[in-house]
Amino acid sequence: MENVKKCCANQQTSKTLLKAKEELRDIKGKEGALIPALHKIQSVYGYLPEEALMLVSEELDIPITQIYGVASFYSFFSLEPKGQHIISVCLGTACYVKGAQNILERLSSELGIEEGSTTEDGKFTLQATRCIGACGLAPVIMIDEKVYGKLSSHDIPKILREYK
């Protein structure tokens, strides 16, 4: 049984890898291709796994050390797998003074994870973010692309139920 599982996992990996390879085809050989390449890879995998960085290195002929340097520099890129839903808590000035810290703490205790990490079931990633430009709605959070504003910590359980 274990073997079967392993085999399927491998197949899935190679499919994703093929897709990633496909994505890189158009930008190969172009100047300044690295950051667009990492964007594409992250859109395929949801993050930047080691096998994909090795692929980028091979395909674009850029040393992996440089690729890792760029990937670890920009906060947009993630080297860890992300959850199915990404919860971003705005900690910009307006949200902060309106109690964003309480919102973050409530999310953290409801999900049982620290900021910057992912729930064990892979459902949610909780992260703090800088101002998202919705100060009029402060305090705000975003779950994936959806914005929730004028929150109090009591609203959190209800919002999370939408995704369970």
């Binding site: 040393p63 992996i64 050390t65 690729i67 890792y68 340097g69 670890s72 906060s75």
Partner: peptide, 19 residues
């Protein structure tokens, strides 16, 4: 050879091999 490079950012920046 490119065995070492800058990794991470700001105060956390170090010179190290990838990962």
């Amino acid at each position: 050879v490119n065995a070492i490079g800058f990794i991470e950012r700001g105060f956390d920046t170090t010179v190290a091999p990838p990962y």
